[in-house]
């Protein structure tokens, strides 16, 4: 095993080009577990800790440019207004110690369906900026996850920045686990209201081979809110609409039975989370119409 320590982003790209099998390590919270437990012996470890720009973020007009290594602690503390869904999700990541090290780049790089950031990114809308010595490109989050623990990165590419749409309405995130802290998601759900475009977006975690949006549910709700004039009136959403939405979200799941839980439970829990979050976000929208910070 070789340990590569690029001092700059350019050096990192060069190293990744020279050694496409190199495993990037930033927070280490996934990679080191695999090394400690002898599940993985990469030829090269590519340390990204020395590249300061990866730990920086910038709040723009429309988006937040979030460096791949910005720790979850910073997101949950400093970006609650701009990225409320992701801030809530960040708060559920593992433990304080892990949140101090791990960042969204790690979740995206690993692309585990259980990564906590995914549902929030899907719901908010985001693009993943990746780069190689060949150049840079932006991958829409909807196209990023390509299979179980697989993503759209080429072998020589590194994740640099995630461009996340700033919240223009309430967002929520929940995950279910069998412990009240420090738990891997049995399943997770994120919901974002986008009053500007009068649309909603969703994200489901750990209930399908990849993180997914519940598109049919989104389309149903978009139509129902539109037809009922809910965005303008701000009236309480009809329970039957909320139920139908939750059912359609659940129908978008394609879960498995595993040691953490059953497929049937995952479908059920996603249904409940979708219904509750629609209630929470809509109530926030009705109260102020402005993006509110998460309750946690």
């Amino acid at each position: 095993m070789d340990f590569l320590r690029p001092a700059s982003w350019e050096e990192a790209l060069a190293a990744k080009a020279a050694h496409p099998t190199a495993v990037p390590i930033a927070g280490g919270t996934d990679v080191m577990v695999e090394i400690n437990f002898d599940h993985r012996r990469p030829e090269y470890l590519l340390d990204l800790n020395r590249i300061g720009e990866l730990s920086e973020w910038a709040v723009g007009e429309e988006t937040v440019e979030l460096g791949a290594s910005v720790p979850y602690t910073r997101i949950m503390e400093d970006l609650r207004a701009e990225l409320p869904g992701l801030a809530l999700a960040s708060h559920t990541v593992a433990s304080p110690q892990i949140r101090n090290r791990g960042g969204v780049g790690g979740n995206l790089g690993t692309a585990s369906p259980a990564g906590d950031a995914h549902p929030a990114l899907l719901a908010a809308g985001a693009e993943v900026e990746v780069e190689s010595v060949r150049g840079s490109r932006r991958i829409p989050i909807d196209d990023f996850y390509t299979g179980v623990k697989r993503n759209a990165l080429a072998a020589d590419e590194l994740i640099k920045t995630v461009h996340i749409r700033k919240a223009d309405g309430p967002q929520q995130f929940s995950k279910v686990g069998t412990r009240n802290a420090m738990v891997i998601a049995l399943c997770a759900f994120g919901l974002a209201l986008h009053p500007g475009t009068r649309t909603v977006r969703t994200g489901i975690g750990s209930a399908a081979p990849t993180p997914v949006r519940a598109r049919v549910a989104e389309e149903f709700l978009n139509a129902a809110l539109d037809e009922g004039g809910f965005w303008e009136s701000g009236k309480v959403i009809t329970p039957s609409v909320a139920r139908q939405f939750a059912m359609l979200v659940s129908a978008a799941c394609n879960p498995i039975d595993d040691v953490r839980g059953t497929a049937a439970y995952r479908r059920h829990a996603v249904d409940i989370m979708a219904r509750r979050q629609l209630g929470w976000t809509w109530e926030q929208y009705r109260r102020g119409g402005h993006p509110l910070e998460g309750a946690a």
């Binding site: 390590i25 280490g28 919270t29 080191m32 577990v33 470890l45 892990i98 090290r101």
Partner: peptide, 29 residues
Amino acid sequence: CEQGECGSCTVRLDGVPVCACLVAAGQAE
């Protein structure tokens, strides 16, 4: 546990509490 699930290896790295088991030695340079 050496998998970031117990906190018994918590140290401060540049002031920040982290699990030392999940920091590659070379990252401490």
